[in-house]
Design a protein around this nucleic acid. Structure first.
Lengths: 142, 142
DNA sequence: AATTTCAGTTACGAAAAGATAACTACTTTA
DNA sequence: TAAAGTAGTTATCTTTTCGTAACTGAAATT
């Protein structure tokens, strides 16, 4: 009964595709880093499990947003890259990103600049951000 | 641990806002029908529960995408409408919709037109689609 | 010979989200 | 007096999703 409402709406499907906890982030990485191998992707996203990464990757591949190139060497090499449709999405994602950024900026200005100049252009500075706990995310906090 | 990955990414938050099972549909209705009351909205979406509708509405209101006008008459009248930010989103939603539509069309053409001319411009034809059970959604089926 | 690496898969438990139904207050209508 | 309608809230149950950990195979490494 989860897909009985209006799943036939194309926009909704697309939105649903883009949403999951890591999905847009994966596309972002692929878009910034170019073709990336599974392990590297897993390292880049830093926090995702192999299971969910595989899941998302398969979903995205099924939707034609990215391609999977499997080199059947013995340490197998699987490389993921943005497919034409994934590239097409870049524009929308960029727009979405700039709108979100602007709104955040507006909110901050309205409240009186608390954080200084947090005017980063995305969540992907491409070469830093160890993403919280470097390698020990299993510190129970609940 | 569900929001520990990269929730601070503005685009991701926006995407997450837009995603829920009914969210984009609600915005779509508001966009096409203009200001709408709770009960009417619930009827229009046809299948959503009051609980989830309230939840989504509150979320959307909190994000500044829509406004809630509460008229404290005795049969209370609560009207929801798109806020400026909601209007701003219309363009993106339209783009997203057209891309999704085009992709679907491409897929259908590639497979040989099975369904005839399903070239509807959205999931919201604005004036028809009784959407399954017309007014009796409490027929127990479980 | 045992371990490591790659790219996953599988099983299992926990947590979040959603569905359903019952209930609220108050007035108007029958 | 009883029922219906408004806009929800609350509680409970079920479904789905997510995270963790263990496991796969085969070659290269130690």
């Amino acid at each position: 009964m989860r897909e009985a409402h209006h799943a036939e709406c194309p926009m909704d499907s697309l939105l649903r595709l883009l949403m999951g906890p890591w999905t847009s982030y994966i596309i972002w990485v692929l878009r910034n880093e170019g073709p990336t191998r599974f392990g590297e992707l897993k390292r880049k996203v830093s926090g995702i499990s192999a299971k969910v990464l595989t899941e998302r990757l398969r979903m995205l591949e099924g939707a034609g947003l990215l391609t999977r190139h499997h080199e059947p060497t013995i340490p197998p090499q699987v490389t993921y890259a943005l497919a034409p449709r994934g590239e097409e999405l870049r524009g929308i994602l960029d727009t979405l990103n700039s709108v979100a950024l602007r709104w955040r900026a507006e909110d901050q200005t309205q409240q009186g600049q608390i954080g200084g100049d947090k005017t980063a252009d995305s969540c992907m500075p491409a070469a830093d951000k160890p993403a919280a706990a470097p390698a020990d995310s299993k510190t129970v906090s609940a």
